[in-house]
Deep mutational scan, measured.
Amino acid sequence: MAEQVALSRTQVCGILREELFQGDAFHQSDTHIFIIMGASGDLAKKKIYPTIWWLFRDGLLPENTFIVGYARSRLTVADIRKQSEPFFKATPEEKLKLEDFFARNSYVAGQYDDAASYQRLNSHMNALHLGSQANRLFYLALPPTVYEAVTKNIHESCMSQIGWNRIIVEKPFGRDLQSSDRLSNHISSLFREDQIYRIDHYLGKEMVQNLMVLRFANRIFGPIWNRDNIACVILTFKEPFGTEGRGGYFDEFGIIRDVMQNHLLQMLCLVAMEKPASTNSDDVRDEKVKVLKCISEVQANNVVLGQYVGNPDGEGEATKGYLDDPTVPRGSTTATFAAVVLYVENERWDGVPFILRCGKALNERKAEVRLQFHDVAGDIFHQQCKRNELVIRVQPNEAVYTKMMTKKPGMFFNPEESELDLTYGNRYKNVKLPDAYERLILDVFCGSQMHFVRSDELREAWRIFTPLLHQIELEKPKPIPYIYGSRGPTEADELMKRVGFQYEGTYKWVNP
């Protein structure tokens, strides 16, 4: 592979701008107003304001973009700056750019259920340069409990009458099928589907988006991507930290609602779906819905739930269990780990287990898709061969690698495990991989909904998990304890083995 010439960040961002501006969906010269509902909250200060700053800094926003914060707290732009700027990672050389960014910011205080507050917000936006005809993007960085009041008031008082209007809704989209349907029906009564952007930030990850290209742009994968060759698929999300004093919020939802029903299920769809007619948003989402419709409700015998306990040999936070978090209700049975087996009941995947695993306070930070292939028929190497695996590593250190057998150097035919490896950090030294939120917010500006969740996708996802969630809430089974920093409950490994996964433990990928 030829040595790549190092590029400056300015040059890299210039390439990104060229890609972005050559499309006809990006209205570079139009006025846009980006409204952050819930501007005083954690999500706004840690993710949304920093993301908008990065896009502005790199010249990736339309030229005439204004940012308006809205929340109940009586704040000023200076207050917003004070709480969000520490997350910007701005350099001293960017000081003038930073001043320009905050000059485009404003803030309006108001209630979430008060019509007069929204009329005041609308008047404020109209007073901005060309504000009355601007395109408006409303980001709901809010708890779902206020979605209905907020969307109703936005629709009645704050819509642009000339430009387009788009609304970005953060997960969780309800707690179960019934609450999700209620919320979807409410929002759909106010906005068209092409105006609604239900954001799952995992769909903005580079390697998640790469799944489609790997599958449908490489001839070698087509013939082997089926039940005849693939023994099982494992989708993993692991965090090495616990709730760390923020367990009160987590306890309301648990690990299945927080990660599995959305992030992991979306990745499953991209692995299992048929080739779409095109890369058009609805063509892709149509195929994802077909996959979900082929999955039956989760069966309790295919589920393992766990909850982390303190590690007596650990240090600091590792010595504390979930129930030691003062914000967690006493005696909570909320799971911090889950392993679930699903089956896609169609011709391509009949009988292939899709194993979804996620948890907190585990032994490493990792998100990946792992396809394990069947054993080689007619073994001539005296059971020395391990199964081939194709691994798409989402985070950290984005990579695609194939675990395969090669001859060990020497005189004899002794096979050993090795890999074919594409590590993004080595291959793409001159490429700026956008943060997931950067990519998705740019998608909203461009009107691309491919990486957002459609209402029928959402409904099918909740259909699969709601009976299990209701059973857990009714019966309150005690989750299996696992030690902070471990791989999780051993019962999860036993479940995976029972459905056909072979864990060798003899080879570990190392970032080159």
Rank of each mutant, 00 (worst) to 15 (best):
Leu7Thr: 15
Leu7Lys: 15
Arg9Tyr: 15
Thr10Lys: 15
Gln11Tyr: 14
Cys13Ala: 13
Leu16Pro: 15
Arg17Gln: 15
Arg17Glu: 15
Glu18Leu: 09
Leu20Ile: 14
Gly23Thr: 15
Gly23His: 14
Asp24Asn: 13
Ala25Ser: 15
Ala25Pro: 15
Phe26Cys: 01
His27Ile: 13
Gln28Met: 10
Thr31Gly: 10
Ile35Tyr: 00
Ile35Trp: 01
Gly38Ser: 01
Gly38Trp: 00
Gly38Val: 05
Ala39Thr: 01
Ser40Phe: 03
Asp42Ala: 01
Asp42Leu: 03
Leu43Gln: 03
Leu43Lys: 01
Ala44Ser: 07
Lys45Tyr: 06
Lys45Glu: 05
Lys47Asp: 01
Lys47Leu: 06
Lys47Cys: 00
Ile48Leu: 05
Ile52Tyr: 06
Leu55Ala: 12
Asp58Thr: 09
Asp58Val: 09
Leu60Pro: 01
Leu60Val: 10
Leu61Ile: 13
Leu61Asn: 03
Glu63Leu: 15
Asn64Leu: 06
Thr65Ile: 11
Phe66His: 14
Val68Asn: 02
Gly69Tyr: 03
Gly69Ile: 02
Tyr70Gln: 07
Ala71Lys: 04
Leu75Ala: 11
Leu75Gln: 11
Leu75Trp: 10
Leu75Asn: 10
Leu75Lys: 10
Thr76Glu: 13
Thr76Ala: 10
Thr76Arg: 12
Thr76Gly: 08
Val77Trp: 10
Arg81Trp: 09
Lys82Glu: 10
Lys82Ala: 12
Glu85Arg: 05
Pro86His: 10
Phe88Lys: 00
Lys89Asp: 13
Ala90Asn: 10
Ala90Leu: 09
Ala90Gln: 08
Glu93Lys: 11
Glu93Arg: 12
Glu94Ile: 00
Lys95Ala: 14
Leu96Val: 14
Lys97Ser: 08
Leu98Ile: 12
Leu98Pro: 01
Leu98Arg: 04
Asp100Ala: 12
Asp100Glu: 11
Phe102Asp: 03
Phe102Thr: 02
Ala103Pro: 04
Asn105Val: 10
Asn105Cys: 13
Ser106Thr: 14
Tyr107Val: 07
Val108Ala: 07
Ala109Asn: 15
Gly110Glu: 06
Gly110Trp: 01
Gln111Asp: 12
Gln111Trp: 09
Tyr112Lys: 00
Asp114Gln: 10
Ala115Trp: 14
Ala115Asn: 12
Ala115His: 15
Ser117Asp: 14
Ser117Tyr: 11
Ser117Met: 10
Tyr118Lys: 07
Tyr118Gly: 06
Gln119Thr: 14
Arg120His: 12
Arg120Phe: 13
Asn122Asp: 12
Asn122Gln: 14
Ser123Thr: 13
His124Asn: 14
Met125Cys: 12
Ala127Pro: 10
Leu128Pro: 09
Ser132Asp: 14
Ser132Gln: 15
Gln133His: 12
Gln133Ala: 09
Ala134Pro: 09
Arg136Phe: 13
Leu137Asp: 03
Phe138Ala: 03
Phe138His: 05
Pro143His: 00
Val146Pro: 05
Tyr147Gln: 02
Glu148Cys: 09
Glu148His: 10
Glu148Trp: 12
Val150Asp: 04
Lys152Phe: 13
Ile154Val: 13
Ile154Ala: 10
His155Ala: 12
Glu156Lys: 12
Ser157Val: 13
Ser157Pro: 01
Cys158Asn: 12
Cys158Tyr: 04
Cys158Phe: 07
Met159Arg: 12
Met159Gly: 08
Ile162Arg: 14
Ile162Lys: 12
Ile162Tyr: 12
Asn165Trp: 05
Arg166Val: 01
Ile168Leu: 11
Glu170Ala: 04
Glu170Leu: 01
Lys171Gly: 02
Gly174Pro: 04
Gln178Leu: 13
Ser180Gly: 05
Asp181Glu: 13
Asp181Thr: 11
Arg182Asn: 14
Ser184Lys: 04
Asn185Phe: 10
Asn185Gly: 12
His186Arg: 13
Ser188Val: 08
Glu193Leu: 03
Glu193Gln: 01
Glu193Asn: 01
Asp194Asn: 13
Gln195His: 08
Gln195Trp: 06
Ile199Asn: 07
Asp200Phe: 02
His201Ile: 03
His201Cys: 03
His201Gly: 01
Tyr202Ala: 02
Gly204Ser: 05
Gly204Lys: 02
Gly204Ala: 03
Glu206Gly: 07
Met207Phe: 01
Met207Trp: 04
Val208Tyr: 04
Gln209Asp: 05
Leu211Lys: 04
Leu211His: 03
Met212Glu: 02
Leu214Phe: 14
Arg215Tyr: 03
Phe216Val: 03
Ala217Met: 06
Ala217Pro: 02
Ala217Val: 05
Arg219Val: 11
Ile220Phe: 12
Gly222Pro: 15
Pro223Asn: 15
Ile224Tyr: 05
Ile224Met: 12
Trp225Ile: 07
Trp225Lys: 00
Trp225Leu: 01
Trp225Glu: 00
Asn226Arg: 06
Asn226Gln: 08
Asp228Lys: 08
Asn229Ala: 08
Ile230Thr: 05
Ala231Asn: 09
Ile234Thr: 15
Ile234Cys: 11
Leu235Thr: 05
Glu239Gly: 04
Phe241Glu: 04
Gly242Val: 02
Gly242Ala: 06
Gly242Lys: 02
Thr243Pro: 09
Glu244Met: 15
Gly245Glu: 07
Gly245Phe: 09
Gly248Leu: 05
Tyr249Gly: 03
Asp251Met: 00
Glu252Leu: 09
Phe253His: 06
Gly254Gln: 05
Ile255Ser: 01
